[in-house]
């Protein structure tokens, strides 16, 4: 079997690149894409560990729920982005810095 370390390293690389994307970019769409990378890294780790603990199904179930929540998150987040775009002329995440008014 392929050693588990390869999957773990791949998951870490995806997570780190997702954090990097979220930190460096100002565009809201980039921030969402970074979040998707992070969620995928977590799901990949779940599935890899489940496979190497004797083909258990629990990890795959967790990954399915992660995908469900990611879909819900993407829909709601894009609705919010649409409203930000409506209020300010841009979707720069540093623009909306005042709650209220």
């Amino acid at each position: 079997m392929q050693p588990l370390a390869g999957y773990v390293f791949l998951g870490t690389a995806m997570f780190v690149l997702g954090v990097f994307t979220m930190v460096t970019r100002k565009n809201a769409i980039y921030v969402l894409m970074g979040a998707e990378l992070i969620l995928n890294a977590a799901a990949l780790n779940f599935v890899a560990f489940a496979r190497y603990m004797g083909n258990r199904l629990d990890g795959q179930m967790f990954a399915i729920f992660i995908i469900i929540l990611a879909a819900a998150e993407a829909a709601v987040a894009l609705g919010i982005v649409l409203q930000i775009h409506h209020h300010f002329p841009s979707i720069d995440v540093s623009k909306p810095d005042r709650l209220g008014d």
Binding site: Y7, N27, A28, I29, L32, M33, E36, N40, V47, A48, R51, N55, Q60, A63, I64, I67, A70, A71, A74, A75, L78, V81, L82, H85, I91
Partner: peptide
């Protein structure tokens, strides 16, 4: 890794759905 159903779900939901949402979001940029 032997997760055949999960791979299909990943293709359908992520590659098919969420990416379309993103490409729609790009129009705002």
């Amino acid at each position: 890794l032997g997760a055949d159903f999960l791979g299909g779900v990943q293709l359908l939901v992520y590659v098919g759905g969420i990416t379309i949402l993103f490409i729609y979001g790009i129009m705002l940029t």
